[in-house]
């Protein structure tokens, strides 16, 4: 089973990286970008019997730092005919 873990900074936590990306976009001439926040996507391939609780535990214990980050677990549907 493919699982995507989206890790993002909590609202209110300043994101220097996102701000730098924002400035760079403006420097390239892209108008109308109001804000940029950078996160992280972690792709997992896990056995089908791995529980939701275990996935949640992985996020809390390692994949996200709960002081500054939130996470969202997305289980991807099996692609029909995929190898």
């Amino acid at each position: 089973m493919k699982v995507h873990v989206h890790v993002s900074l909590k609202p209110g936590v300043l994101d220097p990286q996102g701000r730098a990306i924002h400035h760079a976009l403006e420097g390239l001439g892209f108008d109308g970008v109001n804000d940029v926040r950078a996160g992280r996507l972690i792709e997992l391939d896990v056995d089908d019997n791995v529980s939701d609780e275990a996935l949640d535990d992985m996020c809390r214990k390692l994949l996200a730092n709960m002081v500054i980050e939130n996470y969202r677990i997305e289980k991807l549907p099996e692609t029909v005919g995929a190898a």
């Binding site: 936590v13 300043l14 220097p16 990286q17 730092n65 500054i68």
Partner: peptide, 17 residues
């Protein structure tokens, strides 16, 4: 130490990058 939970808080990228 912050990552291990022995100390409060977290250390993020410097504001200046």
């Amino acid at each position: 130490l912050t990552e291990s939970g022995l100390l409060p808080g977290a250390l993020m990228r410097n504001a200046s990058q």
